[in-house]
């Protein structure tokens, strides 16, 4: 798959502090790329370098086959985490100003803004001042301004903070729609459930280094432990538990069910298969529950960060 954005061994120091240490990422065209990491890992610095707000000390960025140049500003839309608007300006003129800064003509900006305002049902806000709006309302304006100039690359830093669940969903659908229309999205967040839901690729930064990256599914594959969560219906639970413990590594499992069953996590070693386990279990008891434990993005995040 072709990459829209490639960062090659990017490093950045602020005085004695290393913000990024030799970080490389590749963002495939048309993907949703999750840029993850704990606070202070260097995500914002990397995003600012992509936006040409800060210059890297070493390394280079390639956007759509060209080294990053100032004219690429119009190809990128960036929704920063800490975001605000001019408090005393009216919504309409403010959105127009920001759109024009991205290179749209006044007329073009206005017609696109009208379309978006209708779409997000905020048409009657045009003449309001920002200070009259709630935080969530202002977020909608910021979202529109970010995507208005139809950039190839969209960068969202914690896009859902400040939104109620309904509007967060609305914005999520809009982001996915933009991806389907051909935009590439870099998505930086702490909310792992939205990573799970939206990202195809992830990169994990920790203390200025990239410690993990790739397709989310590949990573999950890599991190799976061959553990299965099972529920077994049997009267004599203790005997079966002992018998299984002698054959496999077994821990107590905890999941919701409507019956009093024996709930276990069973980890297979290399040469055993899921089918083999299932056959064995069905010969012993009634199997009411059989699921492979796939590591969640959250598990992977915590595990990798702790390992490093």
């Amino acid at each position: 798959m072709e990459n829209l954005l490639i960062a090659e061994s990017v490093s950045k120091n602020f005085g004695d502090f290393t913000a990024l240490n030799n970080v490389s990422i590749s963002v495939p065209k048309g993907s949703v790329f999750g840029l993850l990491g704990p606070n202070g890992a260097g995500k914002t610095t990397l995003i600012r370098i992509i936006n040409q707000i800060t210059m890297p000390d070493t390394g280079k960025i390639v956007l759509d086959g060209e080294p990053l140049q100032s004219h690429h500003i119009k190809d990128i839309g960036y929704l920063p985490e800490e975001r605000g608007l001019y408090k005393s300006m009216r919504v309409g003129e403010q959105a127009l100003y920001l759109a024009q800064l991205k290179g749209l003509s006044h007329r073009e900006a206005k017609s696109r803004l009208k379309w978006w305002f209708e779409r997000l049902e905020i048409g009657d806000w045009w003449n309001k001042k920002i200070q009259e709006l709630s935080k969530g309302m202002a977020q909608k304006i910021q979202f529109i301004v970010t995507v208005l100039h139809q950039p190839k690359l969209l960068i969202f830093d914690e896009p859902f903070s400040g939104f109620d669940p309904i509007n967060a969903n609305l914005i999520k659908d809009e982001i996915l729609r933009l991806r389907d229309e051909g935009s590439t999205i870099i998505f930086s967040t702490h909310r792992m459930e939205s990573v799970e839901e939206m990202c195809d690729h992830i990169a994990l930064l920790h203390e200025s280094n990239k410690i993990l990256d790739g397709k989310l599914n590949d990573i999950k594959q890599q991190y799976r432990t061959n553990t299965y969560e099972v529920g077994l219906n049997i009267d004599d639970k203790e005997t079966l538990h002992k018998e299984l413990s002698s054959k496999f590594s077994v821990t107590q499992a905890d999941f919701r069910s409507i019956r009093e069953e024996l709930k276990l996590n069973i980890t297979l070693n290399g040469n055993e298969t899921a089918n083999g386990l299932l056959n064995y279990l069905t010969s012993k008891a009634e199997v009411s529950h059989f699921v492979e434990l796939i590591p969640s993005a959250n598990d992977i995040f915590i595990r990798t960060v702790e390992e490093n």
Partner: peptide, 15 residues
């Protein structure tokens, strides 16, 4: 004012 309202974060990627 631009700093405290954080509008600067939005503008700085275009200017």
């Amino acid at each position: 004012e631009e700093k405290t309202s954080r509008i600067i974060e939005i503008i700085i990627s275009s200017v």
